[in-house]
Simulated scan of single mutants.
Amino acid sequence: VSGNTLSLYSIVGGDVSLPCNNVIYPNCSSTIWNYGSIEEVHLGRVKKEELNNRADRLSLGSDCSLHVSDVRAEDAGVYICRQFLTEGEPQHGGDAHVHLSVLTMSSSSPVTDIKPDRPVTLRCSLHTLNGTGRCAPAINQDVSLSWQRVDETDTGLIEAGTNLQGDSRYQVTQLSHCDITLNMTLQREDNNRKWRCQLTGKVETFLDFTVTFPGTSNAVKLPISHIMLFVTLTVMAAIVTIHTTRSNCPPKALHPQAEEASGIELQVLEE
């Protein structure tokens, strides 16, 4: 909370509930919600006839909080909850302000151009009352953004102005506390790796960008020793099944071609 303003954070595509701290009537019949100068909720009802598609993402909670689903960058800004005892009368009490900031991420390259040995720039920005990547004084002053590399074995933290594990292919530019970019040249081992934009401060949240090269498979690769063990166990199970079946049936001679076809061939692609 900054002064009389409550600060909330959401990621793009997420859901958020904006609390109203000055409710009079529990049934919300006295509650009005404004987004800036636009009235979005009038005496407990969402004004769908004026808000078009945005109204479909708004709803009022049982405590008169304003719920925003599928949050978008343009949802950032100041929301005001007000109370009116009856229609047409002066406002009762003061305003309850809620400032919503939205974390977004973008890539300089379309998905089809994300390939090994090609450069890519990821931008992570906090959308605030002041615009994209522009911190709002006294509201976003205690937050910061950073880049992380996330994979199955370790997590390396990229801090502004430094390179990941001393690798010069990573370049981080901190434009402000609310705007940070990551420049790198992708390598083959980056396939299926996550790059995380982490927001830290009084609250913590993050967005992930997963690199997946076109035409690659996500199939799990087993070590060769595991493959041989699996095949051995499968052959043993087949022998037991065949032996049990044949104990109840007279033996039959196999045609020479059938004997040749019954062999098991295992092909293992060496790494």
Rank of each mutant, 00 (worst) to 15 (best):
E40P: 00
D70Q: 10
T245P: 00
L182W: 01
S109K: 14
S106H: 03
G133S: 11
K252Q: 12
S7V: 15
S65Q: 03
I264G: 11
G77E: 11
V120G: 01
P116Y: 05
V1P: 12
V98I: 11
G93L: 03
M228S: 13
Q141Y: 08
T212M: 07
L100Q: 06
P137K: 01
R54Q: 09
E152V: 02
G14I: 00
P214S: 04
Q165I: 00
R149N: 07
S144Q: 04
S30E: 11
S69I: 11
C64L: 10
H92E: 15
P214N: 07
H99I: 05
V1S: 13
N21V: 10
P250N: 11
N22D: 04
I114H: 01
A160W: 10
P223F: 04
M105K: 06
V12T: 07
D179W: 00
S30T: 15
T104Q: 13
H99E: 15
G263V: 03
G94K: 14
V16S: 06
V268Q: 02
L58H: 02
N130A: 04
E49V: 06
V16E: 00
V16Q: 08
N191T: 03
H42K: 13
P223T: 00
R196P: 08
E74K: 08
P223E: 10
C249W: 03
V41C: 12
R134H: 15
S2M: 05
N192P: 04
S176T: 13
T112P: 02
L129V: 05
I114P: 00
V203M: 09
C178F: 08
P19M: 13
G161R: 01
G94I: 11
L222G: 09
D113T: 05
L145R: 00
T200L: 07
F206H: 15
T86P: 02
D113P: 04
A138G: 09
C81W: 02
I139Q: 13
S176V: 14
D113L: 01
M105D: 05
L85Y: 14
S217Y: 04
Q91D: 12
A238G: 14
D75E: 03
S108D: 14
I38S: 12
A73R: 10
A238K: 13
S106I: 05
E265L: 05
T121Q: 14
I180C: 11
S262D: 09
T31A: 15
A136E: 15
M228K: 14
S30K: 04
T128V: 01
T173P: 06
L126S: 10
G13Q: 02
R246C: 00
T200H: 14
P26T: 07
